[in-house]
């Protein structure tokens, strides 16, 4: 229980939510938070081995050319750590196998999916079975959405959290699977952590704009079977204080923003289990 929790926030090549992601880690109780440029990882100046919590923030890796996160995933796959000659991917797999945590938000989620880290069935972390594609509206949109959390999911970030309100800010957030079987398995294994809901009924919805991108099953976020790798399109790090809420001047809200719980849960999990 006395363990120092160390978080790393990966940035560079178009990532742009690193500051608020790092701020969330700090507020969530991490003892050390480093914003590390991917070049610094590749040059061996930092190593994932020294951290417990990998944050993949939102942004536009490589401008989202070739599709969101696609070129970024390709870089992660081929990049070699220059000091050791080890593939970055090997370092990453070691990180996962050590039972450590990864949180990918928006572009970070897209990156996880395109690297094959999610859904991570059968401990495979390089198998692309799902993807995130263009919103049905074919538009980038910034809007706040209501979310329901599946309490039965193994996700370690969402324990005790039932409903959430976060902004989405993406053009490619429609979650799709390779086939029906994959979708069914995600459902069966309770890996669909988060769904877009109708704010009036609280029920998952396919209606635009409550479901901002047309994701089947209203999927907003998924985790791997261990619950330690979690990706979501909405931005928890964008709601850390009540004044981030779009209606804070007209509603009575708790001081703390709803996004913080996710980070605190992850960090507490590390403190207890790693």
């Amino acid at each position: 229980m006395t363990k120092q929790v160390k978080a790393i926030v990966l940035t560079g090549f178009g990532t742009n939510c690193e500051t608020e992601m790092a701020h969330a880690c700090k507020l969530g109780g991490a003892d050390q938070v480093d914003i590390v440029h991917i070049s610094e990882l590749i040059h061996g100046e930092f190593s994932l081995d020294n951290y417990h919590f990998l944050n993949l923030p939102g942004g536009f890796l490589d401008g989202d050319d070739l599709g969101a996160g696609q070129a970024g995933a390709h870089r992660m796959k081929y990049a070699m750590v220059q000091s050791s000659g080890e593939k970055l991917q090997v370092q990453l797999i070691r990180f996962i196998e050590a039972g450590k945590l990864i949180l990918g938000v928006c572009n970070g989620f897209q990156l996880m999916v395109k690297m094959g880290l999610l859904p991570g069935f059968d401990n495979r972390h390089d198998d692309r079975q799902v993807s995130l594609t263009y919103n049905d509206s074919s538009r980038f949109e910034d809007r706040w959405v209501s979310l329901a959390v599946d309490q039965d999911s193994p996700c370690v970030f969402t324990s005790g959290v039932t409903s959430l309100y976060f902004p989405v800010r993406h053009g490619e957030g429609k979650f799709v699977t390779r086939d029906e079987k994959t979708l069914q398995r995600l459902k069966d294994e309770k890996l669909i952590v988060m769904r877009y809901t109708d704010p009036k009924t609280g029920r998952p919805t396919m209606e635009y704009p409550a479901n901002p991108n047309g994701s089947p099953e209203a999927i907003a976020g998924v985790c791997d079977p261990s619950g330690r790798l979690f990706g979501l399109m909405p931005h928890p790090e964008a709601f850390l204080h009540r004044t981030n809420h779009p209606r804070w001047t007209r509603e009575d809200l708790p001081e703390e923003g709803q996004g913080l719980a996710l980070f605190r849960n992850g960090i507490n999990f590390i403190r207890k289990n790693l």
Binding site: N16, C17, T19, E20, H23, G58, R139, F140, E141, D142, R143, W144, P167, R169, H235, E237, A238, L240, T243, N244, P246, R247, T249, R250
Partner: peptide
């Protein structure tokens, strides 16, 4: 306005679209 990210960097306090229906 919707098609512009007006919140990245985490410091958004009064947004361009506000009110009961945002």
């Amino acid at each position: 306005v919707r098609q512009y990210d007006h919140e990245v960097q985490g410091g958004s306090i009064v947004k361009p679209l506000i009110g009961v229906d945002n």
